[in-house]
């Protein structure tokens, strides 16, 4: 004769509603998530000047002064320039390597000094700034292509290769202090 096995109540927590709970949470997070990526022009400001510290002397030829007035007109080293040509002129200035005595000695020495009037519209300032950043991007790309055969952005972040190119064309953008006589 067979002895019937006693059926016991299962001691488990009912988990059939687990999926429902998880779905509920999932839908909540789906709704509150924003997957838009932030984009913008990155920049590192120079540290605040120490008390009684004179700005380091820079040769006149190594500074490219860009002035933007309240009407959005751009002046580059005393010369009126349309915004669309800023990039070409900046590239010329940086990549001069001492050929033209008016322009920079070498890319390492070149400093772009940007000065705006207080009433300059932000959009024009960004357009001009974009051109300057674009000039550096193109020069770095060209150098990376010549050196490694890839674009600058394709190089690994913080790798020696990327640092080498960045050191060849260091971004030296000075944003002049607002009060007159302080800049340069």
């Amino acid at each position: 004769m067979l002895i019937k096995k006693r059926q016991r109540d299962s001691a488990e927590i009912p988990s059939s509603s687990l999926a429902d709970i998880a779905f509920l949470l999932l839908i909540f997070f789906l709704l509150v998530t924003t997957i838009d990526v932030d984009t913008g022009i990155g920049l590192v400001l120079p540290p605040a000047p120490q008390e009684n510290q004179q700005p380091p002397p820079i040769k006149e030829r190594n500074i490219l002064n860009i002035l933007v007035n309240e009407e959005g007109l751009v002046l580059m080293d005393e010369e009126p320039t349309p915004v669309g040509q800023v990039k070409t002129k900046v590239k010329e200035f940086i990549d001069n390597n001492g050929q033209n005595p008016e322009l920079s000695d070498s890319p390492e020495d070149a400093v772009i000094s940007i000065k705006t009037s207080r009433q300059t519209p932000y959009s024009i300032y960004i357009d001009m700034f974009d051109e300057v950043v674009g000039a550096y991007a193109e020069l770095r790309n060209a150098a990376a292509q010549a050196e490694f055969g890839v674009n600058y952005s394709a190089l690994e972040e913080d790798s020696p290769a990327q640092e080498k190119i960045a050191d060849m064309y260091p971004k030296q953008i000075s944003i002049a202090e607002p009060d007159p006589g302080e800049g340069e």
């Binding site: 920049l43 540290p47 009433q119 960004i126 700034f129």
Partner: peptide
């Protein structure tokens, strides 16, 4: 106008928050 931007940047420099980004 960029005047206010210049003021903000001066403040950021004083606060030593140097990495900025124009969105």
């Amino acid at each position: 106008e960029t005047g206010i931007l210049t003021d903000i940047q001066e403040e950021l420099r004083d606060a030593n928050a140097l990495r900025i980004n124009y969105s």
